[in-house]
Design a protein around this nucleic acid. Structure first.
Lengths: 146, 146
DNA sequence: GCTAGGTAAGTTGTGCACAATTGAATTGTG
DNA sequence: CACAATTCAATTGTGCACAACTTACCTAGC
């Protein structure tokens, strides 16, 4: 008898991960629409709100994104008037990404978003913290897997 | 003093989710390359290996994807020779997605992939099961959030 | 100074996601 | 039966991800 041991979708942690990630982005979407941002754009702004200016490479290291993703994304953020890109004087290869006043001001409007997400998550603060830790361990292990 | 309470990236569960999901896909990539599949294509095949034929809508319900994503994806799977699409006779709106023999046979080659992922995850079976449950709860709650 | 090697950002091409729209087929209701 | 509303798949357009490549620039070693 031919017993295919095909993996089952509903057993896959990775599918749960993929689904949860897309569901989270879907909850962000209407909130971020009010700011005129997409989720990846919001992530870039989060990094800049913490400390700016930042190089493209630096942003990529924080977010795990390469210049192929970031270059056009930053061009859109610049077109929206939230950031300014300036070629570095000391090192002409580098591009420093600065916040504009508008971009800086946006952080105020964004400040309520994390709580909104936490509310939508339906998990206790303890569970959320636990989840964040497990995901951190998982991501580190996956990155280490060759 | 102007204290911007900008949310911090490293506190965000959603970023951890987004990172982990991309890291998992990155581990899948070389494994799936051997089968000629992308991760979303693999998910579609998982559903079909369990039970076929399936309608496009049905696949979409299982995976949370719409026809805008699935139509071109299925066209590529058909071009690869793994599935066959056939307009339903009873209801001409519906398209039944069947596995080809090649597509069916692929399940054997895919059977080792979940274990490889579990190995790369660096979490115990208990932790993985716990994670899957938490993510399931989370996804359900996020979908319920209007 | 010159060049080999490396690094930074950008570009190109493929494949998702997802919103919005289209067009064809079916169903519900008067 | 008529026809409005609904359903299904496909299409169009935007914006990621990511691989592969290009171009410009910097730095070491000579």
């Amino acid at each position: 008898m031919v017993m295919t041991d095909a993996p089952r979708l509903d057993r896959q942690v990775c599918f749960a991960l993929y689904s949860a990630s897309r569901a989270a982005t879907a909850v962000y979407r209407p909130l971020l629409d009010e700011l005129g941002l997409t989720y990846p754009q919001y992530l870039v702004m989060l990094v800049l709100w913490e400390n700016e200016p930042r190089g493209v490479r630096e942003l990529g290291d924080e977010l795990g994104l390469d210049s192929g993703t970031l270059s056009p994304l930053l061009k859109r953020l610049e077109a929206l008037g939230f950031v300014k890109r300036r070629r570095s004087g000391e090192d002409e290869r580098r591009v420093a990404v600065h916040l504009t006043d508008t971009g800086q001001a946006l952080s105020g409007k964004a400040s309520r978003i994390p709580q909104r997400l936490a509310d939508a998550a339906g998990l206790s603060p303890r569970e959320l913290e636990q989840l964040r830790e497990t995901l951190g361990k998982l991501t580190a292990a996956l990155h280490g897997a060759h």
